[in-house]
Design a protein around this nucleic acid. Structure first.
Lengths: 240, 240
DNA sequence: CGTCGCATTGAAGCCATTCAAGGTAGGTGG
DNA sequence: CCACCTACCTTGAATGGCTTCAATGCGACG
């Protein structure tokens, strides 16, 4: 199906759709642009809800905290993804949005968005699709966490990251994970040691390679290989 | 905080808001009503997306299936909840929606909804809130699955179910779980045996009681007790 | 050069799964 | 009405995967 020799796995036009969306927003809402650097906060849980955001570049994580203090990475956002949807129903932001590298976010007042939606059906469609996509993605996460063993979750995480980049036309032959092992583990519901072991195992299987000195930069020769690995994780305990 | 002697734990007006929403929909969209019985399908994965649905009564589950055949309960829906949001971004439904008891669903063509939204800002606000709420709820699930041990997940599941009923003004002194142990386990990422053991443990701790002959009907004397139980599950391995 | 944060790896222990054996309730048909 | 079947649930025992605990390594930074 996919042309595996091509450096980019998909090109279904998502990248172009994102550009069109950004143009539409620029034209109808005059968003306020802000450059963010790694570690900077875009909004914080508890703040009064006022703006929706869209990422024009960079990568960003969503951190949620339960009433009793448990912390959880509940989402990762890439170019074209919206931030702040969950706040609409609450009236205040319900998680922290933190930039993971340098990027640019566009801020739009929610009431302006609503008004613009009424006037521009295309804008409303775009927003509904974005919210719908977020719901889809959350379910994929649930599926991964609930049905996959630890090694496969890590493989699926890498696949997700690589696919997210590829869909946006970014290079995937060498990707930089902008999360610590502890954060990855938190996101996947496993410990940092298990993440580390899983990555080592994937490297031994030649499904990934660590580039550079540090072990944050990863090369994935063939994303399909990760999917095969996930299948093997599932198949082994059942059939054999 | 909560008046624990009262049979309904919350009355924040959600029930009334739902009624108002249903009235608004009835007035602006003339939805098509359909009575469903336990086991009947509202829509199926793969069908072309055309309608959004809202539950007027009854309870319903969402079943997702991955490309490689893994099945997963990805959501539970109660009165006032919408169905089909995830399909917007895909053009077709991505999971099966199955009624768990007798209820009534209202169907509305999505293109009609979009048109009505442009004309009625209140309707648009309602839909955005509903999608936002679904995103919130999905994150709560992630949090539960990723940070709680098995026993606590089951307790949290019961708490969620009871709260969902209470918010809607339904009685919670005696609730009927309309899922098998296997389905509950699937939803929580644990096995059916573990669910069974957890329920037995909660009964021994007098946090729940089985009523009737079968073990599907459960009485929860005090939902707050379940929250304390969850805290103890978390606290024990850490502090003591 | 020493410190600090992060990552890796080993060993031990535990929680959840797996495997297995009943038990219960409801439906069907003799 | 009872025997039987099926689906679901419960409980025990053993296994195993993941966590926990601990030690070491590595790179960045002052």
């Amino acid at each position: 199906m996919a042309t595996t020799t091509h450096p980019f796995r998909f090109d279904d036009g998502l990248s172009q759709r994102i550009s069109e969306t950004l143009q539409l927003l620029a034209a109808t809402l005059a968003p306020q642009r802000r450059v963010v650097h790694a570690g900077e906060t875009i909004y914080q849980a508890g703040e009064k809800f006022s703006h929706l955001y869209i990422l024009n570049s960079g990568i960003c994580k969503l951190l949620s905290q339960s009433a009793d203090g448990r912390e959880q990475v509940v989402g990762l956002k890439f170019r074209g993804d919206w931030l702040g949807f969950a706040a609409i129903s609450q009236g205040h932001y319900v998680c922290d949005a933190v930039a993971m590298d340098t990027g640019e976010v566009w801020a739009m007042r929610y009431d302006s968005v609503m008004k613009a939606c009424a006037a521009h059906p295309a804008l409303m469609a775009v927003i509904h699709e974005a919210m719908s996509g977020e719901i889809m993605r959350d379910r994929d996460s649930m599926m991964s966490v609930c049905t996959l063993p630890a090694d496969a979750r890590v493989a699926d995480f890498l696949r997700y990251w690589a696919d997210s980049l590829a869909e946006r036309g970014l290079r995937t032959d060498q990707i930089t994970l902008r999360m610590t092992r502890a954060e990855i583990g938190n996101y996947l519901g496993i410990t940092l040691e298990t993440v580390s072991r899983a990555l080592s195992k994937l490297e031994r299987a030649a499904l990934i390679h660590f580039t550079e000195k540090g072990r944050r930069d990863i090369a994935i020769p063939d994303v399909g290989g990760l999917e095969d690995f996930i299948q093997r994780c599932l198949g082994a305990p059942v059939s054999v």
